[in-house]
Amino acid sequence: MPGEHAGAHILRRADEVHASGLVMGAYRFGMVLEWLFDSTTNQIFAATRLPLLVMH
């Protein structure tokens, strides 16, 4: 959806396909910068109920 944050889009799609978990990379620009700029990683960590496998 236009204007939708990437994290919200990923979680919406995961729900649509009935995903049982997510595998993703994290903190591409470092944890502090990503925290300051509301990164996709942080948004998914805060909003998901799915199990996550994260690599950074």
Rank of each mutant, 00 (worst) to 15 (best):
V54H: 06
W35E: 12
F29P: 07
G25M: 02
M31Y: 07
G3H: 08
H5S: 12
I44Y: 00
T48K: 02
I10E: 06
A8W: 00
L53M: 15
G30E: 04
G3S: 05
E34F: 01
V17E: 06
L52M: 14
L11C: 00
H9I: 07
V32M: 09
V32F: 11
R28N: 11
M55I: 15
N42S: 09
A47V: 10
D15T: 09
V17T: 10
M1R: 13
F29N: 15
P2D: 15
G25C: 04
V17H: 04
H56R: 07
M55A: 15
R13K: 15
D15K: 07
D15S: 05
R49K: 14
G3M: 05
A26D: 04
D15E: 10
H56Y: 05
L11H: 00
R13A: 14
S39C: 01
A14D: 06
A8Y: 00
L33A: 10
A8N: 06
L22F: 00
V23S: 10
V23F: 05
E4P: 02
N42Y: 01
G3Y: 01
V23K: 02
P2T: 13
L50I: 08
L50Q: 03
A6R: 06
P51W: 01
Q43I: 14
F29C: 09
A8V: 08
V54W: 04
M55Y: 11
R13C: 13
